[in-house]
Simulated scan of single mutants.
Amino acid sequence: MIKMKRYYFLLLLIGLSLACRNKETKNVEVKTKTFMVDADTILIDTLLISEKDTAFVIKPKVEQDPSLQEKKVFEINVLFSNKKWPTLNFKEAIGADLYLVKDLDGDNRPELLLRPEWFSSCWASINLFSIKDNAWKLVKKGSMYYCADEYPLAKRIEEKESKYYLITDSLADDKFIINKNEIKF
């Protein structure tokens, strides 16, 4: 039995060395931030933003914050499983809904839509970010009517012929209106 385990271990080592010998490696510079998280005051949301990429939204635990009325600034930080993407810091938010779109500006990098969560109101900003100089840069900002939490941002984006559209809703003269606007630079 021991000889059999050694034999399997030897086969595993040979297999690994054969699999790795023709692989080319590249050095990639990765800049990350370290966050100390206090579980009493901070929450982390995990959002799947594509088949391979996950975002981690580090946000304040506002219902547990006794200084809520005194606090003037709320902010979130978003870390990504893709280490080539920098951390995103966003002020005036207590959470976020994210959507990763394909390259819109021709730089072979995806862009990111961020809808910040806030305390109240059905109006929300919608922010388009692009990676420029190894940082997320806000390139376009708009607003949307957003009162139905059962329809997250991912269900409000439509892709058609390599273009993206944001679907928003509003109420005017007691009629429910749906708007569809192209997302572009």
Rank of each mutant, 00 (worst) to 15 (best):
M4E: 09
K5A: 10
Y8N: 08
L10F: 04
L13Y: 01
G15M: 08
L16Q: 03
A19I: 05
N22H: 09
K23T: 08
K26D: 00
V30G: 00
T32A: 10
M36G: 06
V37E: 04
D38E: 08
A39V: 08
D40H: 05
T41W: 06
I42Y: 02
L48F: 03
L48A: 14
K52L: 09
F56G: 00
I58C: 11
D65W: 04
S67H: 11
E70G: 08
K71H: 09
S81L: 11
K83F: 01
K83I: 05
K83V: 06
W85M: 15
P86K: 06
T87R: 04
T87M: 06
L88E: 02
F90R: 15
K91Y: 15
E92C: 08
I94E: 06
G95R: 01
A96G: 06
L98Y: 01
D107I: 12
N108K: 11
L112P: 00
P116L: 01
P116A: 00
E117N: 09
W118E: 07
W123V: 07
W123M: 07
I126C: 12
L128E: 05
S130D: 13
K132Q: 11
N134K: 12
K140E: 03
M144A: 04
M144W: 01
M144P: 00
C147Q: 04
E150H: 07
E150W: 13
K155D: 14
I157N: 04
E159M: 14
Y165T: 11
D169F: 13
D169N: 14
S170Y: 07
L171N: 11
N181T: 14
F185M: 13
